[in-house]
Design a protein around this nucleic acid. Structure first.
Lengths: 345, 345
DNA sequence: GTGAAAGCGCTAACAT
DNA sequence: ATGTTAGCGCTTTCAC
């Protein structure tokens, strides 16, 4: 294979331990000795074998991040933040995607590359509390995302209900009354959109309006094409909302595409609000009003939680920090005086 | 730590080797023995320690992928394809981003997590041939992207000159003559945009037109904001192109944003062509005509090349396969009869 | 078909 | 301040 500590020790005429001391920046090494060893290291081009170090230390310095899809810029942007946050703790990130498959989520949570990763950050879609409770893998797990779990794991998520209520309140304040929700799911109660849908219901009720369930649109997935299809379906069954609150920006962008194709003006005919503040939403022809979760904070809190668990510093009980968010108002909800000018870049 | 082979052997009353044979599906094990060992494995919840296996075998089954930015959907989409392609060879992918920093590119190429990754797929921006030649790390490296290198490494890239010529030819065929190029770089000859710019020059020259260098716009980076700023700068210095060919889709989308803000109609006043075919380009209000590189093929060829090098099957000389691409014509270059309808989803 | 033992490269006790 | 040694968990000869 390669050059080992032993080779360097031989070359420098010292013991393995001394070389190890130099490599690991151990305190008590005389400068002369350090220089001698360093020369041997350079001459031989020695590189420490991290695999051996990992085996010995029982940890690898690698954490895994599993998200549904990189194709969703929200997760791509988040992944970038996680990589950066992990680097600050000298951790490397192994990224995987679950393709929104329950099977894959289970697999990953159950020990993705056992003993190779020290811990896991997972953003599940389909996983249930029971799945989490049945988990046997001992590596720490930190959860991300909109689902709620009664499992003993740290979970990082913004206050989705409050954020959604703020989005709906914004629309109500502009005079909209028939506000559709795009991106619900049939079936299970604990669907990802659950909390955002609840926010929609609560804020409408708080305004004295009866939430009109015929304005709730179920979509197959959470991509642009799902938003486009969902919007088309809503219009096709004769509904004419005056605003749309979408589960995420991609769905909102797909919906805007359908609206534009069918000749609706945004926001004059129908206002649109998204969720995620992906960069794309700042560049759509009608820029998109959206809820902007603090992705940097989410990534940082997730990595910090995981690192604390790994170092055994954390308390036993699961933690549920609430990173911030803000409503970013853009053209898709701004009645324009004349021509459109962007207000947020 | 956890349960080791030894524990299982003890429990089953057999030797370590026998357990190892069962774990590794070795041929010559009697069914009875296999069942007995398997029971012990299940009872103890044994999970093989991959780190130890890696140390012993000298390889880890992990490859790294380093791209400039996940924020660019092209790289995010590509990363997803690489993860899938690697999985088909039972490799796991460790993803990193270089943030477009030469320093980081050097670091990564010089041995990202030495001995932890078996090989590396790198999409460089700033790296020079000299940097590559000075590389001491022995792990195989496969290059991606638009730069050309005279270094002995496999390099996967579509024919950028031909693809760019096709894009420009498309614009010429529509009657455009003053075609701007957005996304060049000052300084070095081997900039990423070099080949696409060459395609622009060659095709204009082939059509008997003198490439107008005042229509070549230098941008700071390759994001939406750079496209927006570049387009603004071009217009501000009084140029009125009738078409824009952008280095990539993000720049094109930024340019379209500026054009829309300033009241230009696309494609009537100015047609726009991008490069990459990110999903977003199918959903912009004026959908974007673009060159669509075969990302699946790029990822597959990169992983296959790397895996072949890792297994020692590959020939010595570097290989430069040419994955395919196609021109996807959308609204941004389609003079519409009346209202706009999408032609490609 | 199964067992015993060596060793991958490193770190951590312990010794000097 | 530096050297010696055991052992992390696994695979791999080589016996039997």
């Amino acid at each position: 294979m390669g050059v080992s500590l032993k080779d360097v020790a031989q070359r420098a005429g010292v013991s393995i331990k001394t070389v190890s001391n130099v490599v690991n920046n151990y305190q008590h090494v005389t400068p002369a000795m350090r220089a001698k060893v360093q020369r041997a290291i350079d001459e031989l081009g020695y590189r420490p074998n991290l695999t051996a170090r990992h085996l010995r230390k029982g940890r690898t310095g690698i954490i895994a991040l599993a998200v549904p899809e990189f194709g969703n810029p929200y997760f791509a942007e988040l992944a970038g933040e996680v990589v950066d946050a992990a680097a600050r703790h000298d951790y490397t990130v192994l990224v995987d995607h679950t393709a929104g498959l329950r099977e894959k989520e289970l697999l990953v949570s159950q020990g993705f590359r056992s003993h190779v990763i020290d811990g896991l950050i997972l953003s599940p879609i389909h996983l249930e509390t029971e799945d989490l409770m049945a988990r046997t893998e001992t590596a720490p797990l930190v959860l991300l995302g909109e689902r709620e779990y009664e499992a003993p794991y740290d979970h990082i998520a913004i206050d989705n209900v409050a954020a959604s209520r703020e989005a709906v309140r914004h629309l109500l304040g502009l005079g909209h009354r028939r506000i559709a929700f795009l991106g619900s799911r049939t079936g299970r109660e604990r669907q990802p959109a659950h909390l955002r849908l609840r926010g929609w219901r609560e804020e409408l009720a708080a305004a004295g309006l009866e939430p009109d369930e015929s304005l709730v649109v179920v979509t197959d997935g959470y991509g642009r094409e799902d938003g486009a299809a969902g919007m088309a379906a809503l219009l096709d069954r004769g509904e004419r909302p005056d605003a749309v609150f979408a589960y995420n920006d991609l769905i909102a962008i797909g919906a805007m595409r359908t609206l534009t194709e069918r000749g609706f003006r945004i926001p004059e005919d129908i206002a649109v609000v998204g969720f995620d503040d992906i960069e794309e939403s700042r560049y759509t022809t009608t820029t998109l009003t959206t809820i902007a979760p603090d992705k940097e904070a989410i990534a940082r809190l997730a990595v910090d939680s995981l690192v604390e668990r790994l170092s055994g510093e954390a308390t036993a009980e699961p933690r549920r920090p609430r990173p911030g968010y803000r409503l970013v108002v853009r053209e898709s909800t701004t009645p324009r005086p004349e021509s459109g000018h962007t207000e947020d870049h």
